[in-house]
Write a protein that binds this DNA or RNA. Sequence first.
DNA 1: GTTAAGTAAATCGTTGACAATCTCCAGTCG
DNA 2: CGACTGGAGATTGTCAACGATTTACTTAAC
Lengths: 245, 245
Amino acid sequence: MTDATARTIPTIAQMRDNSLSGVVRHEIETLILSGELLAGSRVNENAVALRLGVSRGPVREACRALVELGLLDLIPNRGVFVRRMDRHDVEEVYDLRAGLTGLAGSLVTARVTDAEIDRLRALVDAMDESAAVDDFPSFYPVNLEFHDVILQLTGNSRLIKSYRALIKEFQLFRTHGLVQPNALRESNEEHHAILDALERRDSVAAYDTSFRHVQHGKQRMFAAFDKLTHAGAAGAAEAHNRTIE
Amino acid sequence: MTDATARTIPTIAQMRDNSLSGVVRHEIETLILSGELLAGSRVNENAVALRLGVSRGPVREACRALVELGLLDLIPNRGVFVRRMDRHDVEEVYDLRAGLTGLAGSLVTARVTDAEIDRLRALVDAMDESAAVDDFPSFYPVNLEFHDVILQLTGNSRLIKSYRALIKEFQLFRTHGLVQPNALRESNEEHHAILDALERRDSVAAYDTSFRHVQHGKQRMFAAFDKLTHAGAAGAAEAHNRTIE
DNA sequence: GTTAAGTAAATCGTTGACAATCTCCAGTCG
DNA sequence: CGACTGGAGATTGTCAACGATTTACTTAAC
């Protein structure tokens, strides 16, 4: 046991500049996002404190921060729980993400340079290749980078922070990796449209293409999800009842 | 001692259902938003704990939550400080707020009823009257309500939460009450445009009019601010150096 | 067999105390 | 006379322990 704790601590010693509370927070975040802590499960303060070799104080502080961030739910006198996402929640996140993505696109038109456009084009081209052979694993990270680059080009730190928080929350819905046959190609066609709008420095078109891209993503995801749900009742049950601790 | 604490606690005893940490958080929030705690000033954990008659634990938890919300800045081993807003920060907040307002407008077109449109029209009419006589005090709350009603009609709890957090952060910039001569009339003309777009259930126009409304608000605010700044150097110094503890 | 009450274990909420760090001021040296 | 070192005070970071609330289990009654 001392060995186990000793093995978990080095990361803490490594990040001594950050307060313990911050390390704990990051640790819990990782635990949740990695899926080790399933949605709906309770986060036991004592257990986490023991596991990380710290006291309950920092754990509580970290949890409050994560509650504020939206990853945890706090029920007074009962504890904090990994937030569970139902269909309505996912729709909310998609809608808000669409708005932020659109905003990012429209803001970027006023600042983006030709070189940055070229960089984005390279990413879209790479995705074209991945989509051609339906290679999701290679498509996905590039897709993430494409949107992240645009986001960062806005230079709006609050927009960036909000968007990233939303992405984290979105990851709670672990079925987001679903894809249907033509999804990759369709998605990248939309990327092309966004790129064109940016190239023309057309802020309205940039908003529109970006907004719709996410909304189409929502439709694609729900289509895949519903297909899975209807296909096997087991799949549906598994998707809904992942509430067991 | 029991008497002193008993006198400072009533609000706490009143809200006993919420955890102490939540009450403390609300208290600090009020302290900041009311201007009692000036931007840049340090929040002393001990002092707050003493003042509220609680221990430092809840205070720390509350502060971590407020840091996550963006009202406080945390500097390790030095404490938490009321976030200071410079011009760039204000611009960021305005831009993000414009995007969220636009999103709210566009989302609402799909759900708004005729009765709700009527309610909004009543608010706009009331603002017309206030604007006609340049009555800012009566204009302002109705303006707030107008936008809040639209926001709530979206039914998107995350959008609502984000927007409200942004408004709180915005209030840190205490110069936002500035208005120039025609500002009220101009502002309400834009409200009319938003209302028209909602009435036509035109989501694109709703986004556009809402987005521009906030952007124009930004321009109006900065115009008033710059005017003040150039008019008297004292005003500028006072506006920028409100960092004194 | 099922329901209800009572008790015990577990866990959260809060507190006060201790260690580490930073700030500020005085004293000293170049 | 200015800059640097030293220590006292204050403040943050962390911890372990205490009361309060909730949960789960056992027992008993209907």
